[in-house]
């Protein structure tokens, strides 16, 4: 089982993600440079957080055109596991691997804080170690995390059980206050129809050790490891 963490110019959670996978969870993990054309036989690609290409044009848009991302797209379309965290989620939206787009946060502020997430779908490669409606405490750090999708598409997203996480309070209740960035339907994480690609705005790699205030983020990585293990990856 091998993980690949993609580095774009401006990625800044690449080392944190590698550290959690390699040092905390003892997994084979390597970096993949955005200009390469080779995924080096990894079983799971992770697009880390940061500000790829300075977030010029739109968050994640330029990164979506990089050479390696064309390989990632092909890998995803063949069923390969791809996780996008924060800026990585934005890249997946721009690439069209996930539906929707990100708008600026409703209060026009960069939000850097712990939030609560309610697990909406625990039957995914990324959440199988979580319980239904479990509330996770994981931090966010973004300016453009206000999820948007046109009405016909959001209907489809819900019908296909593609919503994986929603912003909630500590008890798992949804509210306008808990939905800190104004996302449509409080959506914090989303998977594709097939289930092998997921994007989430919160940073699980920043909450994978008790020392950092929460280890709820480990559930995401442990779920991937469990899923790949069962598949014999």
């Amino acid at each position: 089982m091998k993980f690949g963490v993609v580095i774009f110019p401006g990625s800044n959670c690449d080392y944190d993600t590698l550290y959690v996978l390699k040092d905390v969870l003892k997994q084979k993990t390597l970096f993949l440079w955005h200009k390469e054309h080779d995924l080096k036989n990894v079983d799971c690609v992770i697009l880390p957080g940061g500000f790829s290409y300075g977030d010029y044009l739109r968050s994640g848009s330029i990164a979506a055109f990089s050479p390696l991302m064309q390989e990632v797209k092909e890998f995803a379309l063949k069923g390969g596991l791809v996780l996008g965290i924060c800026n990585g989620f934005q890249v997946l939206l721009e690439l069209g691997l996930l539906p929707g787009a990100m708008l600026r946060n409703k209060n026009l502020k960069f939000l850097c804080q712990f939030v609560h997430l309610r697990v909406e779908n625990e039957a995914t490669p990324f959440t199988n170690k979580a319980k239904k409606s479990q509330v996770l405490r994981i931090p966010i750090a973004h300016y453009d995390g206000n999820f948007f999708s046109p009405p016909d598409k959001i209907h489809e997203i819900k019908k296909n059980n593609q919503v994986v996480f929603r912003y909630s309070d500590a008890k798992g209740q949804l509210s306008e206050d808990a939905n800190v960035n104004g996302s449509l339907e409080s959506i914090a994480g989303l998977r594709n129809k097939e289930g092998n690609v997921m994007g989430m705005m919160p940073h699980p790699e920043r909450a994978s050790e008790v020392l950092l205030g929460s280890e709820d983020g480990r559930i995401i990585f442990d779920s991937i490891i469990h899923w790949l293990g069962n598949r014999g990856g």
Partner: peptide, 8 residues
Amino acid sequence: KVLANPII
């Protein structure tokens, strides 16, 4: 393709 995101 590039300058605008047609979704929004």
